[in-house]
Design a binder for these strands. Sequence first.
DNA 1: GTGGTCTAGACCACC
DNA 2: GTGGTCTAGACCACC
Lengths: 133, 133, 133, 133
Amino acid sequence: MWYDVDLRSPVPVFQQLFDGIKAAVAKGILAPGDRLPSVRELAAQIMLNPNTIAKAYQALERDRVIETLRGRGTFVAGRHTRRAVTDAEKQQVVEAHIHRLLVEAHYLDMDEEECLQRIAAAVRQWHRSRTDR
Amino acid sequence: MWYDVDLRSPVPVFQQLFDGIKAAVAKGILAPGDRLPSVRELAAQIMLNPNTIAKAYQALERDRVIETLRGRGTFVAGRHTRRAVTDAEKQQVVEAHIHRLLVEAHYLDMDEEECLQRIAAAVRQWHRSRTDR
Amino acid sequence: MWYDVDLRSPVPVFQQLFDGIKAAVAKGILAPGDRLPSVRELAAQIMLNPNTIAKAYQALERDRVIETLRGRGTFVAGRHTRRAVTDAEKQQVVEAHIHRLLVEAHYLDMDEEECLQRIAAAVRQWHRSRTDR
Amino acid sequence: MWYDVDLRSPVPVFQQLFDGIKAAVAKGILAPGDRLPSVRELAAQIMLNPNTIAKAYQALERDRVIETLRGRGTFVAGRHTRRAVTDAEKQQVVEAHIHRLLVEAHYLDMDEEECLQRIAAAVRQWHRSRTDR
DNA sequence: GTGGTCTAGACCACC
DNA sequence: GTGGTCTAGACCACC
């Protein structure tokens, strides 16, 4: 599930939650308007301190991934609430990720052709498994 | 240069060095057999604590990116010193990176087509800028 | 409208109502003697808990912005019902606001001249859009 | 001092710290490069929990008001690290503040002329008291 | 030394 | 009920 965390990981738990929820929204597992469990509920369920959950939720709210309605709960935000992005910004983000990937690929002895094929497979696989609601 | 670090970054300095050297080797900026500055030299040059440099070098040696020859210095390792990798391992690495990229792409409102195009551009750009020696 | 509230805002809903009505009176959108909807009417109309509306109305009454006449309804108060203010009090209020504004202006790289010009424009614009009835 | 907080205020303590430091930098009391007390030092000095200080520092770092150098301490950021701002954004910020000020001014029976005079006085007074280093 | 994370648990405002 | 703040104190990585 999207709220799975690994306590032994060096990645902070609140960060894992943050990443997990962001990914779940991107994959369509969580859709705009969906209600997230309350801080206390989730804390009890995955045996974490409520503060840790709250920290993740607050970071997600700052990034407009979720919205909290005072006294009512926390919900996945609609896409419209996000800001415009330039072309250069997009390319920069893609390049940063691909750069890191290609460094690792070099140490796995993958050439350009193999990289492109494996990447295409991964992109197709991701989009197939996306749930559009 | 490959030894540039940003003290203000949240990424640990030793990690930046580690990543920077790995990337420089992958890009061909550093080639097998090239001699790296000694821990002390580099520490003096970029004004860092020698312990920080040593920590990065040790991690690189563990990953067989570099080799230390006692009394002679530190050198970029040859590619043959590395171990074999399975097909599944390769695909898993690619998928992990692409997964993270596609999550970010979702929040930048990029569809499958745009992702593929930008990725292809980034891969091509990387390989053009590679220096093969 | 003056009763618009944003449930996603971190500002409490009752506070938004309070601010909104105070602003509407200052702008002349609501004039002394105008009747406000009853707590229940407004609650039904904007789908809020009546307690929230009541809390805003009570705070407005305490500040003599509105008056409740038992059995007749709630009305915008006349200006004469308010108390006298000293010169020092006025300057203090202005300084507090301007102080906060100038802190933000610093981070937007605005110098004294630019601040004064933009402020003058904002003051003029406000008074032009005021409806005097 | 810039680190004064009022425990009885409804404004959260970490927010008061955040505002205070931002204002101190804008006023020139804290200059780029100045070192802030460590989380623990400040916590001991003003008798707060270190977590509360850390929360304020982290928010300031997100807004690029300060920078933390890993293992070294926290410093006031240089102005160049901040992003570009559009003209519309600036006017919007000014209008929001002036709007709030003019609402209050209405209840203090201040007319346009009096507002402009008091505002000009406040702006001049602020810039006189600024310390440029 | 530095800041960052996390727990356990109190208390509060809002709805 | 909901989330937000704060304390007290442990533990950790980094430099």
